[in-house]
Design a protein around this nucleic acid. Structure first.
Lengths: 335, 335
DNA sequence: TTTAGCACTTGCATATTGACATTGCTAAAA
DNA sequence: TTTTAGCAATGTCAATATGCAAGTGCTAAA
């Protein structure tokens, strides 16, 4: 966003704005004649302005004799200079308010529900990303016998994450011994960041448990496995994954498969996580997830539990509406 | 499967078998000439046999002058009478054996890993369905304070399921009171099937907690919500969801979207669950999930925890190979 | 600076064509 | 009675043509 920003003349701005907004509605290239009426001039004049906008890089043609389509730079200019967040319509408002006025709902459930509604209203896909494990501190480890050789290990973090793993333990180890080690871990490692636990397990726990239990190596390995496992889990929740596929830009088999695979690929989720404050818009190649989509995201913070809310849609997204909705959501989350 | 089963002559059987197996390999209609060599007769003779098989409903034409394609009845006859489970090839064997010989792996993890490999080898989609909640008995409820107004409720079942829910409790309720109710539930409702807990909560717990805690209505409602929530969760795990989409039968946008939506639709999962013992094959409209796929499924049982393993592929599935693989898997799960 | 007019380009939907694959049928051969 | 050769009929598929509609760029006049 550095560099000289050339502001467009008022009339050029109007044309760009109309092209963007019309295209968002119709998904079809916009012709000069279709906006000449509203602009109170002839289509030829509009064509002149369009030629100018095209030379500046804000709009494009799909082929030599087609109407114009906004470019990424065009959307960016629109978002930065021409658009303002849309006040919610009565209907949108009504749908969301009933959720937040329902005090029985957990706040995190309210967010899920809101996003379900937003996804349905807009035909975009929403993603909720839970705070990744390394931001959580260990609060408690607990084990619970199920049968002779089976126990559950529970790991609970300060932010309310719970992970569990079923274990089959060999006959040589008793539940009592496992419990003893659990107590030691609880005494020494509480408030350690989850992703640091494995390390501390090696240096603080491993050297001493030999004094308390037999078979300390096996037990150490068991706990190490459990923690390694847990540290690598992260929560993400898609709402309306298929909505996106109904957008006209996803009308080819290739693109559909491509986006589906990306939604499934855990390694790409990092690219959805919100790193900046406020509501941010990443248009096309501005995001690392997929160059054909726009992602609008914002952080949320519920009692210290932080995460990301993201709306994924085509570049031809209703920017003003979504930003308005997210602003409303944010203000409600922070009461 | 009732009714008269007309067994085909040996030569007809051979032709049907060749058509099915060739079509499974190539996904292209099979012509009379392409199998006349192997059958040691002219294509005209094969055509006569084919006409007969078609009149019996075992094969079909895609258009008047096309080769033949197996019908559902044809696949069914093939599976019931012509096919035998395929011994695994050295390669398949090798891949799977390394998993089961690794004793460090939890059995459930070994199943996941095996299915990953199977999905990759075959380009089908695998599904693992955990036992649904109503087969689990309540083992313990536990609550844990996080901060003043936030607690976690944990629900653990006899089969090692753990569910949790974060709760915000009003100031009027103390953690102590919540704990007291938890103790009562643990005393009275342990070993109740999860889906019956809500009911028992109403008749056995609600009437008496007034004696132990103030605000018993709010507390009752809170626990009721938690259990209702938990009873409706069920675990399912897809492996290689996108593999199926690469099969040539899913070459249209419509079908891809359709199957993706079905995979997402929780209500359809019931149709994947295995109800019968052994390895069962549901071809096309024989399953209620999707008429364009075949589902081969089997129950598994690990230390009393039961569930379903299912392979979802096109009707043109390598029946013999998959059944062979599942037999191997089953025998390994039961040691 | 704006506009009217027109030639030009492209997309799209719909035939047209020819090459090819495969069948069913008929009549001859085994 | 069963098998086969031969051939017309019917379909797919890919490439090509055709006409129409939409929309632009350019030129010259207003």
């Amino acid at each position: 966003m550095l560099g000289v920003i050339k502001l467009l003349s008022e009339r050029s701005s109007n044309v760009l704005k109309m092209i963007v907004e019309e295209y968002i509605k119709s998904a079809k290239p916009i012709s000069s004649s279709s906006i000449s009426d509203t602009l109170k001039c002839s289509s030829a004049t509009v064509r002149n302005i369009m030629a100018d906008l095209e030379s500046k890089g804000y709009i494009e043609k799909t082929h030599i004799s087609s109407g114009r389509v906004p470019s990424e730079a065009g959307y960016r200019y629109y978002v930065d200079n021409l658009m303002k967040p849309k006040e919610m319509t009565g209907e949108d408002m009504l749908n969301l308010q009933t959720i937040f006025s329902n005090n029985n709902l957990q706040l995190s459930d309210a967010i899920s529900k809101s996003l379900e509604i937003i996804s349905e209203m807009t035909n975009y896909t929403s993603v909720i990303l839970g705070s990744s494990a390394n931001e959580n501190l260990l609060k408690k480890v607990e084990i619970m016998p199920l049968s002779d050789n089976n126990i559950i290990a529970l790991i609970i973090t300060d932010r309310g994450h719970v992970e569990h793993k079923n274990l089959t333990i060999p006959d040589t180890i008793s539940v009592e011994e496992m419990k003893r080690v659990t107590e030691i871990i609880n005494k020494l490692l509480v408030n350690t960041p989850i992703d640091k636990v494995s390390e501390k397990l090696e240096f603080k726990i491993k050297p001493i448990i030999g004094n308390y239990v037999k078979q300390h190596e096996v037990i150490y390995e068991t706990f190490l496995n459990v923690f390694n496992d847990v540290a690598n889990r992260s929560s993400m929740h898609f709402v309306g994954k298929n909505n996106l596929l109904n957008q006209p830009e996803f009308n080819s088999l290739e693109k559909v498969k491509d986006i589906i695979e990306k939604f499934d690929d855990k390694s790409l989720v990092d690219h959805i996580k919100a790193n900046e404050d406020g509501i941010n818009v990443y248009i096309g190649s501005e995001n690392e997830f997929d160059e054909d989509v726009t992602i609008i995201k914002t952080k949320y913070n519920i009692n210290g539990e932080v995460g990301t809310i993201a709306i994924v849609g085509p570049k031809r997204m209703e920017y003003d509406r979504i930003i308005g909705l997210l602003e409303y959501l944010n203000s409600n989350i922070n009461r």
